[in-house]
Simulated assay, not measured.
Amino acid sequence: MSRSAQNQGFTCENCGANVAPLSNGGYRNHCPTCLRSKHVDIVPGDRASACRGLMHPRRVEHRGGKGLVLVHECVECGFIRSNRVAEDSVQGDDIDAIITLMSEIG
């Protein structure tokens, strides 16, 4: 699947936010408002998972070379995947939601 095919907007199934695709060369894989994702991949970008369950953010980690990442867990099957935090000042993830998540688990 091409990068442009992966970089599509979507409506968040958790909060209903209309999520625009990123324009900075990356691609959006979780809602910037509620930080939820969807279990659509087996290997990042393949869209081959049949599960399609919502993935809730469980923690925030800092990883060298990647910066902040959200660790998501699928509520249907327990699959775990990490996703980089979008830090763009215009299209980035809701920093207040990230701080709230960090305070809830830390």
Results as ranks from 00 to 15, higher is better:
L68D: 06
A20N: 03
R36A: 02
A86K: 03
R84G: 15
G9R: 10
R52H: 09
M1L: 01
P32Q: 08
D46R: 02
P32D: 04
F10G: 03
V19C: 01
G9L: 12
V19Q: 11
I42C: 01
G16L: 00
S49G: 02
A5Y: 10
Y27E: 07
R58A: 11
L68S: 03
P57R: 09
S23T: 15
V71Y: 05
S49C: 09
L22R: 11
E104P: 05
G78H: 08
E61W: 12
A5G: 01
P21W: 13
G45K: 10
R59K: 15
G92K: 05
P21K: 14
G26H: 10
M1S: 10
R81W: 09
T33N: 15
V90Y: 07
V71S: 04
V43L: 04
G26P: 04
D94V: 04
P44F: 14
G92H: 06
D88L: 02
G25L: 04
S49H: 10
E73Q: 15
H39K: 07
Q6R: 04
V85F: 01
G65A: 03
I98E: 06
I105A: 13
R84Y: 10
N7S: 01
L68G: 07
A50K: 13
D46L: 10
E104D: 12
V19E: 00
Q8P: 04
A86P: 00
P21G: 14
R52Q: 07
I98H: 04
Q91C: 03
G45M: 08
C15D: 11
V40A: 04
P44D: 06
C34I: 07
C51Y: 00
H62Q: 15
S82Q: 14
P57E: 08
A17K: 11
P21V: 04
V60L: 13
T33E: 15
P32A: 05
Q91W: 12
